[in-house]
Design a binder for these strands. Structure first.
Lengths: 216, 216
DNA sequence: TCGGCCGATTTACGATAATGAACGGCGCAT
DNA sequence: ATGCGCCGTTCATTATCGTAAATCGGCCGA
């Protein structure tokens, strides 16, 4: 039988070069990810010491199919991929995650020159590291939270999301009734339409990168 | 968008007394997720005001296939799902990822346990600090960039924004022809539809908080 | 040495995902 | 009205995914 040469699936029909100028990166990424799918499955299976038929039984996918996935570059339906991912105890994103599309920047903010942002909270010092709101949806600030400072008595609720990454010291968040204690290197990501509040429970100032997303 | 009355987290220990829970949730989940796939695609497409053939052209998937996916419960291969997810600016996990773990609107990431993100670039190590794209529009990662590592020869462009905050070491960005050198404490915020690339020009690894915003 | 056994692989075939090309329906401008 | 363009849908065809069953190969014990 013929081997499906990896990647070269491109049909002769070349899309009109005009149109929406398809980023060629997408096609490349897709082929790369699909190509890496078989090896990933094989690696996981062997790592767990499972034979083809053992995995077949666990996942309710035929051994032949798994074999062809691993060695012949067969591309599965999402259903069988989910079965396998499940049996291998991995999220589908493990095989397919293209989150790697993190790549490029444009408003530069030097360490010392960040605009000082006024806040209603005392004990919270913010230095903006993002562009003006009009142009961006994301806003970020380098934050320094004084010891014992907090967001106030009343929990806040407003549309959007926030993501906080603690660089130094520690912060405590209460979101939706649950309490989270963040140390250096920890992060918290939450929707701000849930009641939330924060505080610095320690005697040391805390340093964090604080990101907010404006509702659109 | 559906807001499941969730909260499953931090709830009083809710021991699953099997009760109504049929056999293994896995089989059920699979069917449920697969079943929700069509509606999700349709909803996204209409929300963006795209016709079947417009999406077809964008995603390089035939309009007929998309139609059958949306209305006839056809289950796609992972390849076509990726094409569609890509064209709709959603990660595959948006359609498929088990919401069992993702359902919560609050995501806490401890310093050591961040999911490692697969990247095509060598010398770039990412540890996700944000929730899954399905629930959030913001994504963030703690990044470690090896000495001399770079984003590759070709600059990328696509809608969205990014914000990078350097914690340690230094990074160099080239966006739209302009070069920016970032030291610890510096930040760069830019729209990703400009051609850009990055590198670590030093002999020391660099550490940064890397944020990305997905277009809606 | 010879069978059994187990693992990976291959083969043959039915099921179906994906395509390209029609087909009717609707709005809109001439 | 008439024609044009765009939309969703359906149809026939092709490509290939997935399965069951057969084949090949190594390992072990009697």
């Amino acid at each position: 039988m013929k081997e499906r040469s990896t990647g070269a699936r491109a049909r002769a029909a070349d899309p009109p070069p005009d149109s929406a100028a398809p980023p060629s990166t997408a096609e490349n990424e897709l082929g790369r990810i699909i190509g890496s799918l078989g090896p990933k499955i094989r690696e996981l299976r062997q790592q767990k010491g499972l034979s083809l038929q053992q995995l077949a039984e666990r996942s309710d996918v035929s051994a032949a199919a798994i074999h062809k996935l691993e060695r012949s570059g067969m591309v599965p339906t999402i259903a069988t991929l989910m079965k396998l991912a499940n049996a291998l105890n991995r999220p589908v994103s493990y095989f397919v995650d293209e989150e790697s599309v993190i790549d490029r920047p444009v408003v530069y903010t030097a360490a010392e020159q960040g605009r000082h942002v006024y806040t209603s909270k005392s004990g919270l010092e913010l230095r903006s590291i993002s562009g003006a709101y009009g142009r961006f949806f994301m806003a970020g600030a380098a934050a320094i939270v004084s010891p014992r400072a907090d967001s106030g008595r009343k929990a806040m609720e407003h549309p959007g999301e926030e993501l906080v990454y603690v660089v130094r010291g520690s912060l405590q968040f209460e979101v939706d009734g649950a309490t989270h204690r963040l140390e250096a290197g920890d992060a918290l990501h939450f929707r701000t339409d849930r009641p939330h509040r924060w505080c610095n429970p320690t005697a040391e100032p805390a340093e964090a990168v604080w990101m907010a997303l404006r509702p659109m």
